[in-house]
């Protein structure tokens, strides 16, 4: 199984049971994960982005046991952010990047975001965008971060049809017809870490084509078992289960 949504380092507001990388890797292996795409919690608030990315790569190489694949941070509100994209590809040899527009303070109709997608396409990077990290109702009172407004995304992505674009933690904010429109907008994929309701994956399949859904856990912030049990709860059958948990991610451009 490929988990496209895990994170390393420390969640800024509390310790998590699996926030030591060896322990997370053990948990992932026990769950049958053979590959996990890892961002860093440091990416949310740190400004030395290349320092974040270097530590992420080192942690994946040192403790990943071949399972962890780093997805770097790029913050287009920082000076010379374009250099971080180049380093992600050329220096760190990453296959993708993970964006946090709400923590970094830009909207999706900002020209910097458009430029970022252009450079990511040139560098053959998968782009992940995390719509939210935490329920807004439970955030720290001094650090309240609204979810990303994805309304401009369909239009922006129409200018970048080739880029593999993955929305993480999106289902609380992107629902119904908006979700279906976004799935049709380009090469857009969705993880299911925040898909809720009973039989949730079955309901997601009514809105999104089956080849656009990826297994993602949002571990270690969420108990990893949440994602695995969601696959078990929905009546998917072996073919769909395998597409969602393995094949859709493995077929993504730049994923190998």
């Amino acid at each position: 199984m490929i988990d496209v949504n895990v994170s390393l380092s420390r969640w800024p507001f509390r310790r998590l049971p699996d926030d030591e990388t060896p322990r997370l890797v053990k948990r992932l292996k026990e769950a049958g994960i053979t590959q996990a795409w890892a961002g860093s919690y440091d990416a949310l608030l740190h400004k030395d982005v290349d320092g974040v990315n270097r530590r992420l790569v080192e942690e994946c190489n040192t403790h990943g046991d071949g399972l962890l694949h780093p997805f770097g941070c790029v913050n287009p509100m920082l000076p010379d952010w374009q250099e971080d994209i180049r380093r992600c590809r050329e220096v760190h040899q990453m296959r993708g990047i993970r964006l946090h527009p709400n923590y970094h303070g830009y909207k999706l109709d900002a020209p910097e975001f458009d430029e970022l997608l252009r450079l990511a396409t040139e560098n053959k990077l998968i782009v992940q965008l995390s719509v939210m990290m935490e329920d807004e109702r439970t955030q720290h009172p001094l650090v309240q971060v609204p979810a990303v407004n994805t309304a401009p995304l369909s239009d922006v992505l129409s200018h970048h049809p080739a880029i593999p674009f993955i929305l993480l933690n999106s289902q609380r904010e992107v629902q119904g017809e908006a979700l279906t429109r976004l799935a049709a907008a380009g090469n857009v994929y969705f993880d299911m870490a925040m898909q809720e309701s009973v039989g949730g994956i079955e309901k997601l399949l009514r809105l999104v084509p089956h080849d656009r859904i990826l297994f993602g856990s949002h571990a270690p912030f969420f108990y990893h078992e949440s994602a695995s049990l969601k696959i078990e709860e929905s009546d998917l059958g072996e073919t769909l289960r395998r597409m969602i948990t393995v094949e859709n991610a493995s077929r993504l451009p730049h994923s190998n």
Partner: peptide
């Protein structure tokens, strides 16, 4: 349930 899943909520116990 039905707003939540059995899965996400059982995970709090099974994964602890």
């Amino acid at each position: 349930i039905g707003g939540r899943s059995f899965a996400s909520q059982l995970a709090k116990v099974k994964g602890a």
